[in-house]
């Protein structure tokens, strides 16, 4: 399994990434286009499908892209792999620290915000990875 993943070329990554990004916001657009209150009351199963199917497609797309970019880096240049791994380290540590800070802050001051903790942590992880990569690149220049 590991060898299959290592050798699989993961084609159309950028296209799939853009498509997944569109898909994740599609339910919001669809609900605004249709009469959402009417759909929720008369056809709740349709409302669930509008939410579920694009989110599922987006999730599969994001997983595909994550694996694709990861294995592309693993197969490629060793300095880029080093930068990638060090950036992942920075992102993981930052996310973990923020997890504890946010749990403390939300539980004590804004319990409803706990619903959004995963989204907030995802954004923090992406930003810390990107910033981390830039700082680490400078170290090797």
């Amino acid at each position: 399994m590991k060898n299959i993943l290592k050798n699989f070329p993961f084609p159309f990554k950028t296209g799939i990434l853009i498509f997944s990004a569109v898909m994740i916001f599609l339910p919001i657009i669809l609900i605004n286009i249709f009469d959402s209150k009417n759909i929720i009351e008369t056809k709740p199963y349709l409302f669930r499908l509008i939410l579920l199917i694009p989110s599922l497609i987006a999730t599969i797309g994001f997983i595909y892209c994550t694996l694709g970019y990861h294995f592309q880096i693993m197969r490629g240049d060793e300095l880029k792999l080093r930068i990638h791994l060090e950036s992942l380290n920075v992102a993981f540590t930052t996310t973990l620290v923020f997890l504890f800070i946010l749990i403390f802050a939300f539980v004590n001051f804004a319990p409803t915000m706990l619903n959004y903790i995963l989204i907030i942590l995802s954004v923090i992880a992406i930003i810390s990875y990107t910033l981390g990569a830039e700082f680490i690149k400078e170290k090797y220049q």
Binding site: D77, E78, L79, K80, R82, K139, Y140, Q141
Partner: peptide, 14 residues
């Protein structure tokens, strides 16, 4: 490897 890797090795950064 990439040219950046060779550059980093020569400059003893990596």
């Amino acid at each position: 490897v990439s040219r950046q890797t060779i550059n980093a090795i020569e400059r003893e950064k990596y």
